[in-house]
């Protein structure tokens, strides 16, 4: 599908009112893996909201990215329980293994590394997620083995 068609498919699921803005952006984020500028301009027209509103929302919420994200999203939890059990060290280890800082994507766009306020599995701290899979009771020396299947 071309990009306009992909966007058209998303927009066709909605009534086209301002309240659809966040769900539409979520769908675009899922479909394109980021929020491309040109698509956002079309969204503003379709929903009849100012482009400023789209830009405000796109930059306010954490799940949106204006830059392309990596193929695999790694989320390292920095919730309280994870913080106390070495979550920060986990982020640093993953970042170092992949040569990427939190909030960024690797150069080959294979991975994006994000930190998250809480993933809600606090009893298994420290915790990380790759895409939809959870990894509980992490330790820095488990990182290489866990990353391996996701590498190109």
């Amino acid at each position: 599908m071309t990009d306009p068609q992909r966007l058209e498919t998303i927009m066709s699921r909605y009534a086209g009112v301002a309240a659809d803005l966040i769900p539409v952006l979520q769908d675009i984020q899922d479909e394109f893996n980021y929020l491309p500028k040109d698509e956002l301009k079309v969204v503003a027209q379709h929903l009849n909201v100012p482009l400023t509103r789209v830009y405000s929302v796109a930059t306010f919420f954490k799940m949106f990215s204006l830059e392309p994200r990596g193929k695999h999203l790694i989320r390292v939890c920095l919730g309280t329980a994870c913080h106390l059990r070495g979550g920060q060290r986990l982020v640093e280890t993953v970042g170092r293994r992949l040569n990427v800082g939190p909030g960024h994507a690797t150069e080959d766009l294979q991975f994006s590394l994000e930190t998250v306020g809480c993933l809600g599995s606090c009893a298994q701290a420290p915790l990380m997620m790759i895409d939809d899979k959870y990894f509980g009771r992490m330790a820095v020396d488990k990182v290489p083995k866990i990353l391996k299947p996701y590498k190109p």
Partner: peptide, 9 residues
């Protein structure tokens, strides 16, 4: 016209 807005948090 809403040419400017708050961005980020």
């Amino acid at each position: 016209v809403s040419a400017i807005s708050m961005a980020f948090r």
